[in-house]
Each structure stands twice: as C-alpha cells, then as structure tokens.
Nucleic acid binder design. Structure first.
Lengths: 205, 205
DNA sequence: ATTTACATACATTCATGTTTGTATATAAAA
DNA sequence: TTTTATATACAAACATGAATGTATGTAAAT
C-alpha cells in the first residue's frame, strides 16, 4: 500500500507533527534526526520530506498548532468586559492559562520544547523575535486592564499600571519557566494558583 | 614549537574556554563542533581533546567559571546583616546582580548560552537539576530576609514571607530571561532597576 | 493518464574519537 | 652540571558513523 487517500495523507502529516513533538521532547530539537521522527511516526524519511521541506519546517508547524489557540484565549479572558473586576480578570487569565497548560498535554510539551529543548540560533532566532512581540502584546493588554482597575479605585495608591503590568508579566514568565523546568517534583505546579492569587492581592487596596 | 610550558598550556586551556563561549553564543551548543572551537582558539582539535574529554566537558568548565562567583555575591548581599533594612537588601541584591550582568561580558554571555542556546537533554538534564537546586537556595535566603523585614514591621499586613519570596524569585527569573532574550533593543535592560524598585516598594507598608 | 503519497537507494558531507607522531619541558641520574 | 629518560602539549592522519538531501521507483487514487 503506497498511495493514500487525501484524508489519510493529512493524517500522516498530523502524525508526523505528533511524532516530532515526542522526539523533540526526548532528544532535543538539534539531536533529533528526520529519521527519528519518521520512525516514531511509523513511516520513512520519504514521507517526512514529502510533507515538510526539512526539520525546521516541521518545528514551525508544530509550534503554530499550539500558539494561536492560546492567544485567542488571552483575548477572551482579558479584554472582554465582564461582571468581575479587572484585577480578578487578570488573576483568572493567569490561572486559566496555567490550568490550560496542565490539562493540554500537547501545548505543555510544545512549551517545554520551546523553552528548554531548543537553541535559538539562525533560523530559530526569528522565533525569538516573535516571542518578544507576543510579550509586548500581553504586557499592553494587562496594562490596559490595570488602568481600568485604577480608574475603579481597586489599586493601592501610587501604583503605576505600566509598572504593575511589567511586574505581572515578569512574574508570569518566571512562573512558566519554573513550572516547565520543574516537571519532576512539581513544586511550582501545585503552588501556581496560590502564587497567582498572592501576586494579585498584593495590588489590591 | 610543540611542547609548551605549564603556564602556556593553562593559557591555551583558558583560551579554549573563551573560544567555546564565543562559538556557543553564535551557533548554539549543539551546532558547535569541536573543530569550530579549536579554530576560534587558533589550535587544532588535538589541543581540545588534550584538555577536555569532549564538548560537554568544555561546556561544564565554561559554566562553572561564572556560576560560583555569582553565588558568593548573593551570600554577601543578602545574608550579611548591615545598616540597611532587609527590603533594601533584597532590592540591592537584585539590582546588584543585574548590574553585574551588565558589566561582566563573560557572565552575560554564559547566561545567554545557558538560557537560549542550549538544549537540556541527556547530559545537560543534570544541569537543569543544579539550576533548580540553586533556585531553592535563593528562595530560602530571600524568604529569611522577608521574615526579618516582617519582624521589623516593614511589610504590608497579611503578607506571607514565603509567598513574597516566591513572587520575587519568579519576578527575577522572568526578568533575567527577558533581559537576556531582549539583547537587541534592550527595553528590559533600561527598565531593570526601576522595575526592581517598583517590585520591592509594592511590599512596603 | 497522470498525479499523489510515499518507500528505497544513492551520493556526499560532516563530525567524532582515536591513534600516531613529535618537539620540547622537566625531572632524575650520573 | 651535564646527560638522559620520560611525560607533556599539542598537530596531523585515520577510521568510522551518522545525517542530509536528492533522485528514483511504484502502486494506488483521481
């Protein structure tokens, strides 16, 4: 059996992405060979080179599958004006993202790969820039939300929304990194929600 | 000229470490070959294999050169009881570390390599565990300092030293990461001291 | 009949570790 | 103090094993 139907081909493409994620996670992106990925997906390198021009393109495809959904979720939680106060919205955004990471294996693994199983040089340097841009977006949205909180008088005095947003962003960046690195004993994973709660309540009047 | 004096040999060893740092930074650890490093140091692979058993050992040597001094600095700033209040000590510890990173090229480059130019798999997984342990130590020392601040009545009410320490640690982890990743336009580098100041003043009564 | 979706075979490059060679520094012996 | 032996600090050559990309083959879908 050689030639598959269109749907079957699309399926092996997806299987290749899944296989790549597994192998990347175990061996790191650099040490992973196209052969490894093909074997893990139960095909030969021919299949890989048919669907993707090279390993880098496979990495890109894997990455794009998880990044877009997460951004959508952020927009939902943060910007949509709801019944809860802005500070609670930020808290729920942070907690929700962590919760999502706990539940969604694919996203979690992809993040782990991007954070500690990938070297950001050459082709991957561009990815770094994308990440930085993404951060700028998050910071701006969080800042806006803190701004609203200030107007509503929810913040401590002399608190600058821009600085608060930065502080929150750095806190969350750190949390994500430690959360991912600490996969073995999971101290950060247990504490995550409490830490987020404490972080926000520091800002409350 | 083949056989060098003992001091000359030690010098080429150091040159190899320096060369490795440069090449790791440019090409990432995985894509760096022993040949690259040798060429950058102006020797042949023979010299590398004489001083180090392989690339991993070279990486380890490079890493150890910068990590130990930083830990010493932490102990000095944080634990030694001084004239300033505990919160200021934490602030100065954070600012001092960032300052040190700005000034010391070697340390900065090594951190950049460890954070975004290295894949933590196999032999390097052990390094991850070391980093985690290091973090635990920092958190504990910061917690103790917050504890003293609380006793002296410097903290906001209902502030838990343990949670504050975690929050500070995550903030600082995030700052380090963004600081390193943002090497191009340096938004974080300019703001670093202000951000640290704001972070600490959130805790003040 | 012609693509498609792969498998298989091929050619080439590259990196590694080891081995061998060698000039010299250094220490011991005379 | 000079001579001699040995270990040192590499360079150069060798052997081997990947890994990559491409080219070709092929059976089934369209």
């Amino acid at each position: 059996m050689v030639r598959k139907t269109k749907e079957a081909a699309e399926l092996t493409r997806q299987q290749l992405i899944d296989a790549a994620r597994q192998v990347f996670l175990q061996r790191g992106v650099s040490r992973t060979t196209v052969e490894h990925i093909a074997a893990a997906a139960g095909v030969t390198r021919g299949a890989v080179y048919w669907h993707f021009s090279n390993k880098t393109e496979l990495f890109r495809a894997m990455r794009e599958q998880v990044l877009l959904p997460l951004i959508d979720h952020m927009d939902d939680t943060l910007l949509v004006e709801g019944p809860e106060d802005p500070l609670t919205r930020i808290e729920r955004f942070l907690s929700g993202t962590m919760q999502f990471l706990s539940e969604d294996l694919t996203t979690r693994q992809t993040y782990e790969i991007m954070m500690i199983k990938c070297e950001y040089v050459d082709e991957f340097a561009e990815v770094l820039r994308q990440i930085l841009q993404n951060c700028t977006g998050i910071i701006e949205k969080v800042r806006l939300t803190y701004e609203r909180a200030k107007i509503k008088g929810l913040l401590r005095d002399h608190a600058d929304p821009a600085q608060l947003a930065m502080d929150t962003h750095l806190f969350f960046t750190g949390l994500l990194h430690m959360w991912v690195k600490d996969s073995e004993n999971g101290i950060y994973r247990q504490q995550a929600h409490e830490l987020i709660k404490a972080h926000i309540s520091l800002r409350r009047r």
